[in-house]
């Protein structure tokens, strides 16, 4: 029973905490983990036009870190 990464842009503040917290993102791009990387679609998710957007959800290992950090339940696994 594999879980899936979901986002709800209606809840998203565009704060980008999930992008920075995600350990997979960090291993893909250190700059993204530092919060000052240029836009890349290689990472699982990025903030685009003020909202979170999934780019490579297939890279997600379902560790739940993004959900733990998201202040508004805009990103979660189910």
């Amino acid at each position: 029973m594999e879980m899936e990464l979901k986002v709800n842009q209606d809840n998203c503040l565009g704060c980008g905490v999930c992008v920075v917290a995600c350990p997979v993102n960090a291993s893909i791009s250190n700059e993204v983990a530092g919060g000052h990387g240029s836009k890349t679609t290689e990472t699982i998710m990025m903030v685009e036009n003020g909202f979170i957007k999934l780019f490579s959800p297939e890279k997600c290992t379902k560790c739940g870190t993004c959900q733990l950090f998201c202040p508004t339940d805009a990103i979660w696994l189910e």
Binding site: M3, C63, G64, Q67, L77
Partner: peptide, 8 residues
């Protein structure tokens, strides 16, 4: 997906 299951 035990990580997500346990943590969330």
């Amino acid at each position: 997906s035990i990580g997500a299951i346990v943590r969330t």
